[in-house]
Amino acid sequence: MGAPADPRGSVVDRAIRRMSAALGVIAAGALVVLMLATVLDVIVRWITRASVPGMIEVAETALVASVFLGLAWTSVQGGHVAVSIVTDRLRPGAARVVSALVWAVNTGMLAWLGYASVHRAALSTALAETRFGLVQWPVWPLRWIIAAGLALWTIVALVNLLRVLRGGVAYGEDREVVADV
């Protein structure tokens, strides 16, 4: 038997958990901003019958941040929907092969999306891309938020692939809830 596992996890595990938690906190803060902006806009509309200028842009920005910065944290916590109808019926070795294949495809797709997002963010930054509405709003920072969120989520998927290949479980698999239907 090998040495007992470090309960704190490896350096990589701790770094991924800290980075994803930090981005998750920012995502939660963006969700609070979205909520407060919506409440403010509703109150102002009720009183003045007019929206607060720029509120749509603030809401869009907060929504992008809350979604993309929370992806890695949700994955580490096992919060994404998982369907195990196939792997539950397989022997453990075959289930591990299927899981590794799924994580390999997931990692490849996320890497491709991340690459495309970084390319698009760089182009958007070079062009100083803005959104025109009632308020001129910069779009390029949002594109970097998307790229950062996808980059960390890609790293989480890659680490999950490596964990499964080594005979372990992916992040969050130990927290999965089984629904009896």
Rank of each mutant, 00 (worst) to 15 (best):
T107H: 02
A28I: 05
W103I: 01
G114W: 09
L165A: 15
P138G: 10
M35L: 15
W73Y: 12
A170P: 06
G93I: 04
E173I: 00
V32A: 14
L165E: 02
V169F: 05
V58G: 00
A157S: 15
S10C: 05
G79W: 05
P92H: 07
T48S: 13
V64Y: 05
I47A: 04
G70P: 09
W73T: 01
T61F: 14
M35H: 04
R18Y: 05
I56P: 01
G70T: 06
S84C: 08
R166P: 00
V11P: 01
D13N: 07
T74G: 12
L161W: 02
E129A: 14
V102D: 01
E176D: 09
G149D: 07
W103P: 00
V102F: 05
M1R: 09
S124Q: 03
A148N: 02
I43P: 00
G167E: 09
V97D: 08
V181F: 08
T125E: 08
V11A: 13
W137E: 01
V105M: 07
Q77L: 10
W144I: 06
V11N: 00
E60F: 11
L110C: 13
V33S: 06
G79Q: 06
S117I: 03
D88K: 06
A65E: 01
V105D: 02
W112V: 10
G79N: 04
T125D: 08
V67I: 15
W140N: 08
W137F: 14
I145V: 15
A126D: 13
A3P: 04
L162P: 00
G108I: 11
P53S: 07
L36R: 09
G168H: 06
A122W: 13
P53C: 07
R131S: 15
A82T: 10
A116H: 04
L110W: 10
A128T: 11
T38G: 14
V98P: 10
T74K: 09
R89I: 04
E129D: 15
L34C: 02
G172D: 07
G54Q: 05
G93Q: 13
L152A: 11
T107F: 14
W140Y: 15
I26F: 12
L142W: 10
R166C: 00
M19A: 15
W112F: 15
S99Y: 02
A15H: 02
